[in-house]
């Protein structure tokens, strides 16, 4: 009787020692770590090569992620923050909490990438998703304004797609942005706090179109074998969302963090993303991705404001948005 107790005791005290294989802590958004996101596969793949434990910590959505890092400040236990987008990188850089990455890779992005602090891992075009049988599909914002369609968008103050749309209109129309928003106002059914509420309303048939990504229809085609959704292509061009990760300057495990950022650009990581995050990989895997991604509509023009410019424009663009929609 006494012996098993002793063994159990040893195992109990031994457990922390075993866990002392180094642990890398990555803060990311909630849907990344969820059972249906890339998280579980990424964890398995990285732990195979790193001889460490990968802790993926979900902290709300993309916007909340930066708030969380700021709340914790330099005391943060996180090594890597994964899931900011280009509209947030300037604000993130300004916190001084991030360190240069030193990763170089052949990125398959529609734009040049030379940010010293953040490594891109996937990207997509913002777009309005609709049912294929929608009678008159608008070909531009001005078409949309002239139509009698109802759209659902996200609040730029609480969601990254919402902020993306704000920048999209700004990048496409510059000084005319306020006018476009005033035109759009009657077309907007409601503004939701996050992507999921908006997309849910759309799927319930509440709206004709929803702000999402050109890659969203791929989910329905590949996972549900449902070909009824597609994205409208606008003549003004489409704003890009590039999702990035960065290493914290105060990372407790800086080497592992570097290794993870490097791993992010490899096939092992990149091939997971398309069918879990439903975005384009930042580095095309050698074996390519599901060919049905090729059938997705592809914009002619990619729009992306440089991070600093986006940060400078943000307050004014938000004021225009508030002004137009508050009437």
């Amino acid at each position: 009787m006494r012996c098993p107790m002793l063994v159990a005791g040893l195992m109990l005290t031994g457990a922390p020692a075993l866990a002392q294989a180094p642990a890398l802590t990555v803060y990311t958004y909630d849907s990344f770590v969820s059972e249906w996101g890339p998280g579980p596969q990424v964890k398995t793949a990285f732990e195979e090569i790193c001889d460490c434990t990968l802790n993926l910590v979900g902290a709300g959505d993309g916007a909340a992620l930066l708030a969380r890092v700021q709340l914790e400040g330099a005391r943060s236990q996180a090594d890597v923050v994964l899931g900011l987008d280009t509209n947030l990188t300037a604000a993130a850089a300004e916190t001084g909490l991030f360190a240069p990455h030193g990763v170089s890779a052949e990125f398959d992005l529609p734009v040049e990438w030379d940010d010293p602090l953040f490594v891109p891992f996937d990207w997509g075009y913002f777009a309005f998703v609709h049912d294929r049988d929608l009678a008159e599909v608008p070909g531009s914002f001005e078409d949309l304004i002239a139509s009698d369609l109802q759209i659902v968008i996200q609040d730029p103050r609480s969601s990254t797609p919402g902020l993306g749309l704000l920048m999209w209109v700004k990048a496409a129309y510059g000084d005319r942005a306020a006018e476009i928003w005033q035109g759009l106002a009657p077309r907007i059914l409601t503004v939701t706090p996050g992507w999921s509420e908006a997309y849910g309303l759309f799927l319930n048939g509440e709206a004709d179109m929803v702000l999402s990504y050109t890659t969203s229809p791929a989910y329905h085609t590949i996972a549900e074998d449902d070909d009824s959704k597609t994205a409208a292509i606008f003549a003004e061009g489409h704003y890009l969302q590039v999702e990035v990760a960065g290493k914290l300057a105060a990372a407790p495990q800086p080497e592992l963090a570097d290794q993870f950022l490097e791993f992010m650009t490899t096939d092992a990581f990149q091939s997971i993303l398309p069918e879990t995050n439903w975005m384009y990989p930042a580095v095309m895997p050698a074996n390519g991705i599901d060919p049905r991604f090729d059938d997705l509509p592809r914009p002619e023009t990619a729009l992306l404001l440089p991070a600093e410019e986006a940060a400078e424009l943000r307050a004014a663009a938000l004021a225009e948005w508030l002004g137009a929609l508050s009437r």
Partner: peptide
Amino acid sequence: VLFAETGNQTLPMQLQRLMGAYRM
């Protein structure tokens, strides 16, 4: 939402995550 991470989600959180993964 502020406190939880993988392994200790509650049902409303999981509901939110399902919605976030297109699984309406």
